[in-house]
Measured scan of single mutants.
Amino acid sequence: DRHTIHIGDITIHLEGFSEEELKLAEELIKRGIHLEEVKRILEELYR
């Protein structure tokens, strides 16, 4: 499954994450956390 996060003019595609995980990812990215770090956090929390 493919999910999309929109932040301003930026569109990020993250596959294989639930709606809850994507909301967390979006919040972290909006707070300035680097995408690679966001992915690592999600994997630690949900895998």
Rank of each mutant, 00 (worst) to 15 (best):
H6G: 10
G8I: 06
E27V: 10
H34D: 14
S18M: 09
R47S: 14
E36W: 02
L14R: 02
E36V: 06
D1E: 08
E20F: 07
H3L: 10
K30W: 04
I5M: 01
L14H: 04
F17W: 08
L45Y: 14
I7M: 13
V38I: 11
L35F: 10
L42C: 00
L24C: 08
V38S: 00
R31A: 12
H34K: 14
E37L: 13
A25G: 07
F17Y: 14
K39S: 04
H3D: 10
D1W: 00
L14T: 04
L35A: 10
S18N: 11
E37F: 05
S18V: 07
E36P: 08
A25K: 03
T4P: 10
H6R: 12
E27Y: 04
L45S: 05
E43P: 00
S18K: 11
I12G: 04
K23R: 14
H3P: 08
R40S: 04
L22N: 08
E20D: 10
E20T: 15
E37I: 12
E43V: 01
H34A: 12
H13R: 12
K39C: 09
E44Y: 03
L35C: 02
E36H: 06
G8C: 10
E27A: 14
R40C: 01
E37R: 03
E20V: 10
I5S: 06
I12W: 00
G16M: 07
E36I: 06
G32R: 02
L22H: 09
L28S: 01
L24E: 03
A25R: 02
E19C: 11
E27D: 10
I7K: 04
K23P: 04
L14W: 09
Y46P: 15
E20Y: 08
E26M: 11
D1N: 11
I5L: 01
R2V: 14
E44G: 00
V38C: 01
I10M: 11
G32T: 06
H34E: 11
K30D: 05
A25Y: 04
E44V: 01
E36D: 12
I5T: 09
E21P: 13
D9Y: 01
K39N: 04
G16L: 08
E21S: 13
L28N: 00
L35V: 09
L24V: 14
I12F: 02
D9E: 10
T11C: 00
L24R: 04
G8T: 08
R2D: 13
I33W: 05
I41F: 08
T4K: 10
K39L: 15
K30G: 08
H13A: 09
R47G: 15
H34I: 06
G16V: 11
R2F: 14
L22I: 13
E36L: 06
K30S: 09
K39T: 05
F17S: 04
K23D: 04
E44N: 04
L35K: 04
E20W: 05
E27S: 09
K30C: 05
L28F: 06
K23F: 07
G32H: 04
E44Q: 02
R31H: 08
S18R: 13
F17E: 03
I41K: 02
E20H: 09
T4L: 02
E36S: 07
E15W: 09
H6K: 13
R31W: 10
L42E: 00
K23M: 09
G16N: 07
L42G: 00
L14C: 15
L14K: 02
R2Y: 14
T4R: 04
A25N: 00
I10K: 12
I5W: 00
D9M: 07
E27T: 12
I12S: 05
R47K: 15
R31I: 07
L22F: 11
L45F: 12
H6D: 08
I7D: 10
H34Q: 13
H34T: 15
A25Q: 01
L45R: 05
G32P: 03
I10D: 06
L42W: 01
I33S: 05
S18D: 11
G32Y: 06
H6W: 00
L24Q: 05
I7F: 11
I5Q: 05
L28H: 02
K30E: 05
A25W: 04
E36C: 04
L35S: 06
E26T: 13
E43W: 03
H3Q: 07
E27I: 11
E21A: 15
I12D: 04
I10P: 04
I10H: 11
G16P: 04
L22V: 13
E37S: 04
E44A: 01
D1F: 00
E43S: 01
R40P: 00
S18P: 05
A25M: 09
L35N: 04
E19Y: 13
H6F: 00
E26R: 09
E26W: 07
E21K: 07
L42A: 00
S18I: 05
Y46V: 15
H6E: 10
R31F: 07
E26N: 09
E19V: 12
K23H: 14
G8P: 05
L28C: 02
R31M: 09
R40D: 01
I7C: 11
L22A: 11
E43I: 03
I7L: 11
K39I: 14
